[in-house]
Amino acid sequence: MNNNEIMNNEVVEATEEVIENAGLSKGVKIAAGIGLSVVVGVVVYKYVAKPVIANIKAQIEQKKVAAEEKTVILEESDVVTEDN
């Protein structure tokens, strides 16, 4: 009996070590995944989102300038009224 108890204790200790290592490995994987997500997000923002936003803003500004050029401002002296 005494021999069985010693072997069971060794197995339990070995199993606890494996479980602790697995938990640490899982935490490292989660941290690496979060870090990788942050890096990918920064790269996408810098090289994709930021240029697209700048392009859209430039197009909107260009449309405003084109609309202002088409607008004709008349002074009262330029306006001729006709009486019917």
Rank of each mutant, 00 (worst) to 15 (best):
V65D: 06
D78R: 06
G27Q: 12
V40C: 07
I60R: 02
V52L: 13
V65M: 05
V80E: 02
K26Q: 14
E82G: 01
S37Y: 05
V52A: 13
M7G: 00
M1H: 02
N8I: 06
M1D: 04
A49K: 06
V48K: 08
A22G: 05
G23F: 12
V11S: 11
Q62N: 12
E69R: 05
T71I: 06
N55I: 11
G33W: 14
V43Y: 08
E16T: 12
Q62H: 04
Y47V: 10
I19Q: 13
N9I: 07
Q59E: 13
M7F: 05
K57I: 15
I34Q: 05
M1Q: 05
V44N: 01
A31S: 15
K50G: 04
A66N: 11
I53M: 10
T15R: 14
K57S: 15
K70Y: 03
G35L: 13
K64N: 03
T15P: 09
E17V: 13
N21A: 15
S25T: 15
I73L: 01
P51F: 09
Q62C: 02
G27P: 03
E16W: 09
I73A: 02
Y45I: 07
I19A: 15
M1W: 03
V18F: 12
G35M: 12
I60T: 07
A67R: 02
V52Q: 09
N2G: 08
E76G: 00
